[in-house]
């Protein structure tokens, strides 16, 4: 109640000042539009138009590494009728799911530590610096650690713990997910930390004062308020991991063809651009379905109540 009473006069104040200087405010906003036009031009030309062209191209027909205008659904039909497409989608979704789940679960306690247990940002900055160590460098690192002649296998052999290198360490789903988790962790952490920052420590203390256990506070206080940032960090990690085409290529072995890799190959080696474009939009559609599904599941589990809890 207190909060509401305090905030109302402020809202009235700001409205009053708006009407007072209407002329001035309008001029300021108008100059904002002028200033926005160069970046807007860039975004429209190099982002919006290419994205629309990609959609249009998915209805065209292919000539090797080029295209001919048409209005055909054959690319979609071809993608959806090939069993390889579903296999690749299944692998991509698994990669995305496990990576997002593990990254979120592992990063959550660290985010909690950063926000509520320590005042310094050292841990966060250190994690972010590792994020800037190239993605490719980290794929390479895991390849040289997990490889048949890699650090782990050679050490195990040297110590006599195994007779033969462990084959499943590299070129496997395990290797891909481990590497993707390593790549995504700092990113997931950043999103979770910025979400938790909005939840004041007072709420946690109030909950404890009222006799709630740590687990109750987590489920009934933190989760309902943090669910938005948890969902967004899960989804971002999911989309980036599921659409990745480099880690599966370098660490996934032969049967780890993800949709991202299939699409990339259409543009790099196969040369059927319209088919690749159609697959890309199908993949986007699947991502949206996953997002809707995730929200539905959370709502059913009562973990994502309406807006009233956090506004």
């Amino acid at each position: 109640m207190n909060v509401v009473n305090n905030s109302e006069p402020i809202i009235l104040d700001s409205q009053a000042s708006h009407t007072d200087q209407r002329g001035k405010v309008d001029k300021k906003i108008l100059s904002g539009y002028w200033l926005a036009s160069p970046p807007l031009f860039f975004l429209v030309v190099f982002f919006l138009i290419p994205s629309v062209m990609l959609l249009v191209a998915s209805f065209w027909t292919s000539k090797t590494f080029s295209m001919a205008p048409a209005a055909t659904l054959s690319n979609y039909a071809r993608a959806l009728s090939a069993s390889g497409f579903y296999d690749s989608l299944w692998i991509a979704l698994q990669n995305g799911f496990w990576t997002a789940l593990l990254s979120t679960v592992i990063s959550a306690p660290v985010a909690y530590y950063i926000v509520y247990r320590t005042r310094s940002n050292a841990v966060l900055y250190l994690a972010l610096v590792s994020w800037f160590s190239s993605y490719l460098v980290r794929v390479y690192a895991w390849r040289s650690i997990l490889g048949t002649n890699g650090v782990i296998n050679s050490t195990l052999l040297h110590l006599g713990l195994v007779d033969q290198p462990l084959e499943w360490l590299v070129f496997s789903k395990f290797a891909v997910v481990l590497t993707l988790v390593h790549i995504m962790l700092p990113f997931t952490l950043l999103l979770l930390v910025s979400g938790l920052r909005d939840i004041k420590k007072d709420y946690l203390e109030a909950s404890a004062d009222l006799g709630a256990s740590g687990a109750t506070t987590l489920w009934r206080v933190i989760m309902p308020m943090a669910h938005k940032s948890i969902v967004s960090s899960f989804m971002f990690t999911f989309v980036l991991a599921a659409s990745d085409y480099v880690t599966p290529q370098l660490l996934g072995g032969r049967d780890a063809m993800t949709t991202g890799l299939v699409i990339a190959n259409q543009f790099r080696s196969v040369g059927n651009w319209p088919l690749g474009a159609a697959m890309a939009y199908l993949l986007l559609l699947v991502f949206m379905l996953v997002y809707a599904l995730l929200l539905g599941v959370l709502r059913a589990a009562n973990l994502a109540p309406g807006k009233r809890y956090h506004d």
Binding site: F47, I49, S51, M53, G260, F267, W273, A277, A280, L284
Partner: peptide, 18 residues
Amino acid sequence: FAPIALPGLFLGIALVIF
């Protein structure tokens, strides 16, 4: 923000076509 909400793969292939 939109360009980084999409995976790099999409930006890459959209630009190739463009």
